Computed example of a mutant assay.
Amino acid sequence: MKPTPPLMRRIALVAATAASTLVLAACGSNNGDVDGRSGHDSPAKPASSPSDRAPAGTHNAADVAFAKGMIPHHRQALEMADLAATRAASHQVKELAEKIKKAQDPEIKTMSGWLTAWDEEVPEEMPGMDHSAHSAMPGMKGMKEMDALKKKSGKDFDTSFLEMMVGHHQGAVRMAGTEKDKGAYGRAKTLAAGIIKAQNAEITQMNKLLGKN
Rank of each mutant, 00 (worst) to 15 (best):
M1W: 14
M1N: 11
L22P: 00
L22M: 03
V23R: 02
V23K: 00
L24G: 09
G32P: 00
K45E: 15
K45C: 15
S49V: 10
S49C: 14
P55E: 14
A56L: 15
H59L: 11
N60E: 11
V64S: 12
A65S: 14
A65P: 04
M70Q: 09
I71C: 15
I71V: 15
P72K: 08
A77L: 11
L78N: 14
A81D: 09
L83C: 07
A85V: 10
A88E: 09
H91S: 14
Q92G: 09
V93E: 06
K94E: 06
A97R: 08
I100G: 07
S112H: 05
S112Y: 02
L115A: 11
T116I: 13
T116A: 15
A117K: 12
W118I: 13
D119S: 12
V122L: 07
S132L: 06
A136G: 07
A136T: 13
G139A: 10
G142N: 10
M146F: 03
D147Y: 03
A148Q: 11
L149T: 01
S153L: 03
K155A: 15
K155M: 14
D158W: 03
L162D: 00
L162P: 03
M164D: 02
M164H: 01
M165K: 02
H168D: 05
G171W: 00
V173Q: 01
D181F: 01
A184V: 06
R187H: 08
K189G: 04
A192M: 07
A192K: 05
A193C: 01
I196Y: 07
A198Y: 05
A201F: 03
A201D: 13
A201C: 12
K208E: 12
